[in-house]
Structures are given as structure tokens and as C-alpha cells.
Amino acid sequence: MSSQVKTWHGSINQPTFLQERSTFDKHTLGVTSLDINLGQEYLVTGDMSGHIRLFNLRDNTLYKDIDSGALGCWKVAFNTKGNQVISMSQSGNVSVWSVETGEKLRNFQNSSSSGSNHAKQSCLNFALSPNGEQIAISGADGVVSVYELESGKKLNQIQAHVSQPIRALCYSLDSQYIFTGSDDCEIRMHDPQSSKPYISSFQSHNSFILSIAVSPDGKRLASSGADKKVCIWDIKQKKLDHTFQGHTDQIWSLSFSQDSTKLISVSDDCSIVCYSLSKI
């Protein structure tokens, strides 16, 4: 976790493959999360002091600096349209901000009824459904809560993993399923409408799962974990397609390219690795 954000520029064909484009360093202590909106116009970052910053990527300037409060913001993301920023604190306070004005539009508090000790259980991650309707919040207690993004109304609660922190989750392309990756080394597929624990389970990782992502064409699921592996899954057949072992330390995050042919992962070994998926 650094206090700097770097943007990179490059194509696979170049030998250096990535060139540093610009560095943003206005953050306190550490950057917790970041996202780029649809038109690649803005970069949003959240830092440990709870500031949400919007950068204009056209001219690499700070566009907006929003103080979301002392509780901090653990995760930020743009909505599907790219005109709003959703932020969540560790305590599960979800806020929606306008990109244009930087004003807070609304907020709601995630509450899970799993038990009295929930107050201690922090929220780890959230995912927005591609259709823009839902937000799913995962916590350290293994519970996924689904809310209507517009109203903040709670739709469902899934005991997705038994008392295991869920550090990674994402929606399928059609927003019909939620995938969760947890410390119990499993990726599970859930129906956001039902409270059934899970529909199916993908098992290949040997350690905590830190990040999962669905490809933009909706066919593949990529997962990475503390076991230094990147796994590519076929969603339809629910089977493991390929495993990459290019990193020497745990892999914190990964992301697909827009055309779903490439995957990029970043790890504690301080390296970024890009994979070509066209051959598998």
C-alpha cells in the first residue's frame, strides 16, 4: 500500500510493455482503492484518511477532493454509467457521490443480521452489478449482503462462506450471479435472489483468494490468491481452464482488458504481469 498512484501506458507488443505515464501523490498514508470510469476520463482513489480524490486523466490534474469523513473509505468505484462514485468504509457505510459536483447524493449503512458480534466484523469489499441496479457487500464474517443501489434497500443476505473473510467478489455479466472468493480457498457462485449458501464451488487455490474478475465478454472468470496463482475458469462449464504461476508473491488484484483477450495482475513481488488469453 503506497501513497502514490501511477498510471501506465503501453501495448503488449512493445518490449517494455508498460511505460509510466503519470504519478499522483496527494494521498495520506496509503491508497486503499481506485477505479477508472467508463470513458477513461476520471480516476478515483480513496486513501486511508478517508479522502476520495477524482483526477482528470486528460490533463492529469486533481479534479475533486472529497473528505468522506474520519471513518475512512476502504473501497471506491464508479457506477456503470460513470457519473457517480460509490465509496464504502470499513464499517459498512456506503456513500454515493456525484462526479460532477463532488456532492454526496445519498448514503446507507450496511447491516448484517448474522450476529451480535457483527459490529466488529468489518466490510471488506463490494461489487456493483453490471446492470447498475445492485450492490453486493462482503464482510469478514463470510456474509454477502445485496442492496438496491438506487434506494439502499436490502434485498438479500447470503451466508456465502462460513465465518471466512470474503476479500473478493464480482457479478456475472448478466448480473444473475455473484462470485465470491474467500480465505477458505474456494470461489463460490451464488444467486443474489436466494439465501441458499451457494450454487457451485470452484476449487483450485491453496490459499486465500484475494481478487476475482469476470471477463467483459462474460465467459471467463479469473481469480488470484495468496498462493501466487492466477486461475482462469470457464464459467459455463464451471471448470478450470488454465493456471498461471508468474508471480513470486501473493497477487492482490487482477483485471481483464476490454476485449477479454488479456489479463493483468499485480502482486506483492512488486511486479505487474500481463497474460494473453487468446490461446487457452
Binding site: L29, G30, Q90, S122
Partner: peptide
């Protein structure tokens, strides 16, 4: 030290001990 503490925080956000130590 800060870096290490941040690492813990990445694992376990909202840890009071980490916040205190930080």
C-alpha cells in the same frame, strides 16, 4: 514500520490495534 502496518490493514481492515500502532 508504517508499510508493514499498512500490509496488515490490507489483510484486516479496521483493526484497532493497527490503527493504534499506526
Amino acid at each position: 514500520c508504517k508499510q508493514t502496518l499498512k500490509k496488515i490493514l490490507a489483510y484486516q481492515p479496521g483493526s484497532q490495534a493497527v490503527e493504534y500502532n499506526m
